[in-house]
Simulated assay, not measured.
Amino acid sequence: MPQADPESVDPTARLIAELTRRQLRIAVAESLTGGLVVAELTRIPGASLVVSGGVVAYDTAIKRSLLGVSPQLLAREGAVHADVAQQMATGVRIALAVDGRAADIGVATTGVAGPADQDGKHAGTVYLGIAIGDGVESISLDLPGDRAEIRTAAVREAIDAVLSRLERS
Score class of each variant (00 low, 15 high):
Glu157Gln: 15
Ala13Asn: 02
Arg151Asp: 11
Glu18Trp: 04
Ser8Trp: 15
Gln86Gly: 07
Leu163Ala: 02
Val51Gly: 13
Glu149Val: 13
Ala61Val: 10
Gly111Val: 05
Val56Asn: 13
Val136Gln: 10
Lys121Phe: 10
Gly91Ser: 01
Arg64Ile: 14
Leu24Lys: 15
Ala57Leu: 08
Ser140Trp: 11
Gly54Tyr: 06
Arg21Val: 04
Gly124Tyr: 07
Glu40Arg: 15
Leu141Thr: 08
Ala116Ile: 08
Asp119Thr: 00
Leu19Ala: 01
Pro144Cys: 07
Ile139Asn: 06
Gly145Ser: 02
Ala113Tyr: 01
Asp83Pro: 12
Arg93Asn: 00
Leu24Tyr: 02
Gly145Asn: 01
Ala47Met: 12
Ser164Val: 14
Thr110Ser: 05
Ile44Asp: 02
Ile26Thr: 15
Glu149Met: 15
Ala158Val: 03
Gly129Asp: 05
Ile26Arg: 12
Thr12Arg: 05
Gly91Gln: 00
Ile94Ala: 01
Val107Gln: 00
Ala13Met: 10
Pro11Thr: 14
Gly68Val: 00
Val55Ile: 15
Val51Arg: 09
Gln3Trp: 10
Leu49Phe: 10
Arg14Ala: 12
Leu49Cys: 00
Pro2Val: 14
Asp142Gln: 15
Asp99Glu: 14
Pro6Leu: 11
Ser164Arg: 15
Leu41Phe: 09
Ser48Phe: 12
Ile139Met: 14
Thr109Leu: 04
Tyr127Gly: 11
Lys63Pro: 11
Ala97Leu: 08
Arg168Trp: 08
Glu167Tyr: 10
Thr12Gln: 03
Met1Tyr: 03
Asp10Gln: 07
Thr42Gln: 07
Val107Leu: 10
Gly114Arg: 06
Leu74Tyr: 00
Ser140His: 15
Thr12Ala: 01
Glu30Phe: 13
Gly46Trp: 06
Asp59Ser: 11
Thr20Pro: 06
Val56Asp: 06
Ala116Pro: 08
Arg25His: 14
Ala57Gly: 14
Leu74Trp: 09
Leu166Cys: 08
Val126Thr: 03
Gly120Pro: 12
Ala79Met: 09
Leu67Gln: 04
Glu7Asn: 10
Ala17Arg: 04
Gly68His: 09
Val126Gly: 06
Gly78Cys: 04
Met88Glu: 07
Pro71Leu: 05
Ala57Ser: 15
Val80Pro: 01
Ile159Phe: 04
Asp104Ala: 07
Leu73Asp: 01
Pro2Tyr: 03
Arg25Ala: 13
Ala82Glu: 03
Ala4Leu: 11
Gly145Met: 02
Gly46Asp: 06
Arg22Lys: 14
Pro144Ile: 15
Arg43Ser: 11
Gln86Lys: 14
Pro2Phe: 13
Val9Tyr: 05
Thr90Cys: 06
Val38Arg: 12
Gln72Gly: 02
Ser70His: 02
Ser164Ala: 15
Ala57Thr: 09
Pro71Val: 11
Leu128His: 09
Ser70Tyr: 04
His122Glu: 07
Pro11Gln: 13
Thr12Tyr: 01
Gln118Glu: 03
Val162Leu: 09
Arg64His: 09
Ser65Gln: 05
